[in-house]
Design a binder for these strands. Structure first.
Length: 806
RNA sequence: GCCGAUAUGGCGGAAUUGGUAGACGCACUAGACUCAAAAUCUAGCGAGAAAUCAUGUGGGUUCGAGUCCCACUAUCGGUACCA
């Protein structure tokens, strides 16, 4: 009987002691760098979702080693973050201590699953030797003008009392704690990711990411093409600049709308007749949280700015200007030309406030309607009408022509806009990398000298943020006091820290050379290991981590510090593992599966095999305690094959085709992440050997090689018992002969009119005439075609034979 | 609303990419072993008496469709006054 407890322990200890899976320093070998998202070491320990991703790439890593690659498959911990800090506030235990404890627990769990990680390169984002370089990269960003401090309305979480990036606000509430998010004016460090927007789109063409990942990144960046157009303000030299993607509709612009935060109001206060009303509206809008704004998005609100009129530049008509919060200050110019006939929001607004609606586009396939029930926005079938020089043009042509006209007459310019906004990089929190900046009255913001890095987090007793949302570090008066690195005058340190995304934006680079104290990684290591050959992680990180780290990488590339434009050559993602009831695992639902229990009861190999067998890798799958038993049973049968072992240095005739087929299938399926079908191939093989009551040595050995990446412990053990001295993990991956993957005789299906009627045995690659002879000699077929006219006979070699009769 | 997935037995899922639908596993049924149970082994297992009918629904292309085309429906993920 197979004793998984003993065997798994034995091999894990050996691997650890000998550093079996550490990457080699030999840079002449072909390399393969596989990356999984390093975990946040939470107090709850490992989730069964983590090993799904880690096992998948562990399988590829192990296969690559057998294929002769120098493999880097590293692991580390993304250990800054709010839970440790919240725990500290509650229990007055330093986050460093809980983080250390959690990491120790995680390591033990990870090691018990037998991943082939290179533990000698383990990193930890909270280690000063690591965050020294996170701070260093920030300083480089600052020096290039890509980090700047500005006062701006930010998303402020009323629960966590921190500013949040756009990406961290979900449906108007905080992604982490679920508290409402409000707008608050705060001085914040920002990173100019928008400067890289176009490149972040363009360079997706050169990498092998799943299409859905590319699509999500593109959507998030949200590129749109259009024009900025100036509308003159009557009786002044001033004008109002709008952004539109539909300049072809300009003849239908019957009013304008500006956002409540627009500076236009302040500038023209003296002209506004209903200033009180306008100010009241501004006030009301500023009180609304993002959540309320989107909640109320059914009913439009707004106020006309009386006393001021704009001029439509093509019709020369006077049009009113309104203020409304459906126009966002953060997108475009914060002002729009409203074309109610051809924009649904403008249409609703115009209906509510009785503003004129002029149709300037009609559908080419329909008669013009007297009155619109909704805005007509179809760009494919639209034809310009009531539009002067644009009349008769298709919408697409009209857009081109309108932009030409606008540019020729100095009314505006073509313009590309992005939804992507700059990255709010400050957190008013303790447990993060201190932002290495000093404020001097005379010199402004000055970076901490690079030789003084790392700027360590001071030890504190009080982790509470200030009432107004200041960082806990703002209470560390001694620490804050410093000299200006530039002029030497009294100055104060920045008390904000970096967001959790900082440390994970470049960690993969550190793995290449983790102990270097001169550079974040040596040129040689970077040249050799870049880019990452395969990165697997969750879809939830597609718009945050993935985008941020691509941005940082491109920045480092521009400085000549990394050799590739893109960090990740290939990106795939895994599906979530749900609870047994088909719902997301959560403590409150009581459906959480603890990996420790599974490993205790079934062993690491069963756990790994089950997670790969449970369903298609990229799709969500519910956990099943009953199914894992089947995988455990399978491994017991693999072990029992030792009882029916016979001699044989080559495949036996009986199993030759099956062996070649299996090598081919498993080799290909691993590359396509079809792990579930690999496992079923293994099971089928075991069934065949068991049925025949024999397996020869060569067959057993090949089988163990194929299974090794999935179930490394049991396969190593049997391998050793077969008398092999060297480790299975480094034996060459089995090869197959294409010609031998097809059976000598084929059970050919015969169809009559597409319906299966019989099967006959034919020889492999038999000529059509011979097959035809055999088919027509078959008694069953004779019966079916007797007295009928044969219209056609189709033979797909080795596949199928179909007779069409009338 | 927009973007992206998914839909096949009681369940998880397979199908060489247009060629025998239901591989493999779970559950279930029967048998062997056992005083008995568990474990293990052996056999069966979409529906139907059969002709046949079956891959979310309705059309189409084809000798042949789970797979391709058109029109829908449902579920999941992402995103949203983005002008």
């Amino acid at each position: 009987m197979y004793n998984f407890k003993e065997v798994e322990k034995k091999w894990q200890d050996k691997w650890e002691k000998e550093g079996t899976f550490n990457a080699k320093e030999d840079y002449s070998m072909p390399k393969w760098f596989g990356l999984i998202e390093f975990p946040y070491p939470s107090g709850q320990g490992l989730h069964v979702g983590h090993p799904r991703s880690y096992t998948a790439l562990d399988i590829v890593a192990r296969k690559r080693r057998m294929q002769g690659y120098n493999v880097l498959y590293p692991i580390g911990f993304d250990a800054f973050g709010l839970p440790a800090e919240n725990y500290a506030i509650k229990n007055h235990i330093h986050p460093k201590i809980t983080t250390e404890q959690n990491i120790a627990h995680f390591k033990e769990q990870l090691k018990s699953i037998g991943f082939s990680f290179d533990w000698s390169r383990e990193i930890n984002t909270t280690d000063p030797d690591y965050y020294k370089w996170t701070q260093w990269i920030f300083i480089q960003l600052f020096k290039k003008g890509l980090a700047y401090k500005t006062t701006m309305p930010i998303n402020f979480c009323t629960g966590c009392k921190v500013g949040l990036a756009n990406e961290e606000v979900v449906n108007g509430v905080c992604e982490r704690c679920g508290s409402p998010v409000v707008q608050k004016e705060k001085s914040q460090w920002m990173l100019k990711i928008t400067e890289y927007a176009q490149r972040l789109i363009d360079d997706l063409d050169d990498v092998d990411f799943l299409e859905k990942i590319k699509a999500q990144q593109k959507n998030w960046i949200g590129r749109s093409e259009g024009a900025e157009i100036n509308f003159k303000i009557k009786g002044t030299d001033d004008s109002l600049l709008v952004y539109t993607t539909r300049p072809d509709t300009i003849f239908g612009a019957t009013y304008m709308v500006i956002s409540p935060e627009h500076e236009f109001i302040k500038k023209h206060e003296d002209m506004i007749e209903n200033l009180d009303e306008v100010k009241a509206y501004q006030e009301k809008a500023s009180m609304k949280s993002d959540f309320e704004r989107s909640e109320l998005n059914k009913e439009k609100t707004g106020v006309e700015i009386k006393g001021i009129k704009a001029i439509n530049p093509v019709t020369n008509e006077e049009i009113p200007i309104w203020i409304s919060d459906y126009v966002l200050i953060t997108y475009g110019t914060g002002a729009i030309m409203a074309v109610p006939a051809h924009d649904q929001r403008d249409y609703e607004f115009a209906k509510k406030f009785n503003l004129p609606i002029i149709q300037v586009i009609k559908d080419k396939n329909e008669e013009l309607k007297e009155e619109l029930k909704e805005a007509y926005t179809d760009i494919e079938n639209g034809i310009a009408i009531n539009s002067g020089f644009l009349n008769g043009l298709s919408s697409k042509e009209a857009i081109k022509k309108a932009i030409e006209y606008i540019e020729k007459n100095n009314l505006g310019t073509r313009k590309v806009n992005y939804k992507l906004r700059d990255w709010v990089f400050s957190r008013q929190r303790y447990w993060g990398e201190p932002i290495p900046m000093v404020y001097c009255e005379d010199c402004g913001w000055v970076p901490v000298p690079e030789e003084e890095l790392p700027l360590k987090l001071p030890e504190v007793k009080d982790y509470e943020p200030g009432e107004n949302g200041e960082s806990p570090l703002s209470k560390q008066t001694e620490w804050i006091k410093t000299k200006c690195p530039h002029c030497g005058k009294e100055a104060r340190r920045e008390t904000d820290t970096m967001p959790q995304w900082a440390g994970s934006s470049w960690y993969y680079l550190r793995y290449m050379d983790p102990h270097n104290d001169q550079e974040f990684a040596s040129k040689k290591a970077l040249e050799y290991w870049s880019p990452i050959d395969w990165y697997n992680g969750g879809m939830e990180h597609t718009t945050l981590h993935l985008l941020y780290s691509r941005f940082w990488h491109k920045f480092l590339y521009d400085l000549g510090l990394v050799p590739t434009k893109e960090p990740y050559q290939k990106r795939t993602s895994h599906g979530m593992i749900l609870g047994e009831n088909g719902e997301k695992m959560s403590k409150s639902k009581g459906n959480v599966i603890n990996p420790d229990d599974i490993i205790r009861d079934f062993g690491a190999d069963s756990f790994r095999v089950y997670e790969m067998f449970m369903g298609p890798f990229d799709q969500t799958a519910p956990w099943s305690m009953e199914s894992i038993r089947g995988c455990s049973k399978f491994l017991d049968r693999v072990w029992s094959l030792q009882d029916i072992l016979v001699d044989g240095e080559e495949y036996s005739k009986e199993f030759e085709t099956m062996m070649h087929k299996a090598v081919k299938k498993v080799s290909n399926d691993i590359e396509e992440m079809k792990y579930n079908t690999c496992v079923s191939t293994f099971m089928t093989m075991v069934n065949e050997f068991s049925k025949a009551k024999k397996i020869n040595k060569k067959e057993y050995e090949t089988f163990l090689q194929l299974l090794n990446p999935f179930a490394p412990h049991i396969t190593e053990e049997i391998w050793e018992r077969l008398g092999n001295k060297e480790e299975l993990a480094y034996t060459p991956w089995p090869k197959y002969d294409e010609a031998k993957t097809i059976d000598e005789t084929i059970d050919l299906p015969i169809q009559i009119n597409g319906k299966l009627r019989a099967n006959i045995d034919i020889k492999k690659d038999e000529e059509k005439d011979k097959v035809k002879e055999q088919v027509h000699a078959d008694e069953k077929i004779k019966g079916y075609i007797a007295g009928k006219e044969i219209v056609k006979e189709i033979y797909v070699p080795n596949r199928i034979y179909n007779i069409v009769v009338k």
